[in-house]
Design a protein around this nucleic acid. Structure first.
Length: 445
RNA sequence: GUGGCUGUAGCUCAGCUGGUUAGAGUGCCAGAUUGUGAUUCUGGAUGUCGUGGGUUCGAGUCCCAUCAGCCACCCCA
């Protein structure tokens, strides 16, 4: 009995058609992050369990993949890249220096129920600035997300911004500071369940009074342009220093982002978003695709005051965000917006004559040296079959050189998309003309 | 982790209230004077009907369990 090939729930295989755009997203993210000076790091997939559970809540603990290794150690798979960053910085702050800007693109695991755009194994593309409380870093976070989305060819997106200090300030004023978790959880759902739903949940979980509820809804339900919301927020938190600081930081951030050239309306103030309740303390952001508003955030983040408090006495404030690669990929797939690349090479060199294999391989080497990617068909099958293969794999061109061409000192470059073929000179050494013709075919696509 | 829906060839699906050798489209493979592909023509293969039990004279069709997918909750990328 053969073993049935299968994959675990929430875990997937990536076929070339999705693996290629996936890599493209990773490459794009790297390029954007690096352009801001973020530096790459990597950390182990497996950590001591205590590292992972130290910071998280009960919720994250439930989602942890954990087990005992062969040495009896309690270990777990990382469920995000922020906790490993905290450990990393606590361990290496001396070496890397502060402020430390890093990006980290890696797989994480969560034992959650899978859903569309939600998996048990997925990749995050994080970038963070650790070691400074300056708002510059918060502003830059928003700029990076905007740049990244644009670089990915996404125009219809909105970055929603809020500030935990505003929320906390209002909670203070209302005497609800002790119930912030329940209150924020309820408010965060405003977009989903509406004011009535939030009212019900607030009454249930936080036991707020009618007055408190009204004030909270007034805050979370604020609409209009950023300036209007800002003005309202100001009056709502008036008299509370925390809240006032939040409002002024938001104001500063929005001004700076606009000054940096981000289109108006792209970054929107949304007092209802609260985000991960555990470590965020300042600015929080969430990025939604305008065409799939209910799909969930594809990039989110925020500021945390004391990232590594469980690992070191040193105060390590930070701010950063994470692009959810697999969620974004699922979204683009749903929107049918994935670039249709199925082969990484530009052309197929047909192996017309088995006797001349070495000549074809030499040609391929010349073409690669000239900067075009080529694949040599491995066996001398019928030309029709080779062309069929070339077409199916998505090559832009096929290079055909048989006895006639060899004798005539030329090569045929067939454009697969149109069926036309061009004859160019080839003396066995200089593949420049072939390479040029392949580029023409590729760029025509 | 809780609840709901779904599960038939590689893919998309059909299969009436349980009844003989389970179908279509597409894809795949082979061929149409062995130097030219996605069109056309001809022929071909494919499924222990997700898996394992049960009810029944008989189950793809009913029941239970299990696995997987989707959806809601929770939470989140």
């Amino acid at each position: 009995m053969p073993i049935q090939p299968r994959t675990l729930q929430g875990f997937r295989d990536y076929l070339p058609a999705t693996a290629m755009p996936r890599e493209w997203i990773v490459d794009t993210a790297k390029r954007v992050y690096r352009s801001y000076g973020f530096r790459p790091i990597d950390t182990p997939a497996l950590e001591y369990l205590e590292i992972l559970t130290g910071k998280g809540s009960d919720e994250t603990d439930k989602q942890l993949y954990s087990f005992q290794d062969q040495g009896g150690r309690d270990v777990g798979l990382r469920f995000d890249l922020t906790v490993p960053l905290a450990r990393f910085v606590a361990q290496h702050a001396q070496e890397v220096g502060l402020p430390f800007k890093r990006y980290h693109i890696a797989t994480v695991w969560r034992g959650e129920r899978p859903q569309a755009g939600r998996y048990r194994e997925f990749m995050q593309c994080d970038f963070d600035t650790v070691g400074t409380t300056a708002l510059t870093a918060d502003i830059e976070m928003v700029l990076v997300v905007c740049d990244l989305m644009t670089a990915l060819g996404i125009d219809a997106f909105t970055v929603r911004v809020n500030h935990r200090a505003v929320l906390n300030g209002l909670l203070d004023k209302l005497g609800l500071a002790g119930k912030s978790a329940a209150v924020l959880r309820a408010l965060d759902k405003l977009g989903k369940i509406g004011p009535d739903g939030v009212t019900a949940e607030l009454a249930n979980t936080a036991e707020t009074t009618a007055e408190q509820t009204a004030a909270l809804l007034a805050l979370a339900g604020l609409e209009g342009d950023n300036d209007a919301i800002l003005a309202e927020l100001k009056t709502l938190v008036a008299g509370n220093t925390t809240g006032e600081r939040g409002v002024s930081e938001l104001h500063e951030l929005l001004t700076a982002v606009a000054a940096a050239g981000v289109a108006a309306g792209r970054v929107r103030l949304d007092p209802s978003i609260a985000r991960g309740l555990d470590y965020y303390t300042g600015v929080v952001i969430e990025t939604q695709l305008d065409e799939l508003p209910d799909f969930g955030s594809v990039a989110s983040g925020g500021r945390y005051d004391n990232l590594a408090s469980t690992f070191t006495k040193q105060e390590l404030p930070g701010v950063g965000a994470s692009l959810g690669l697999d969620r974004l990929l699922a979204a683009l797939e749903k929107l049918d917006r994935l670039p249709a690349v199925s082969t990484p090479a530009d052309a197929l060199v047909c192996l017309f004559d088995a006797e001349r294999r070495d000549a074809y391989l030499a040609l391929a080497a010349q073409l690669r040296a000239a900067g075009v990617g080529v694949e040599v068909y491995p066996e001398a099958k019928k030309l029709g079959k080779q062309l069929q293969y070339a077409n199916k794999q998505g090559f832009a061109a096929a290079v055909i050189i048989g006895g006639n061409e060899f004798d005539g000192g030329e090569a045929q470059v067939k454009h697969l998309a149109t069926g036309d073929s061009a004859t160019v000179p080839y003396d066995g050494r200089d593949a420049g003309a072939i390479a040029a013709e392949i580029r023409t075919a590729r760029d025509a696509e």
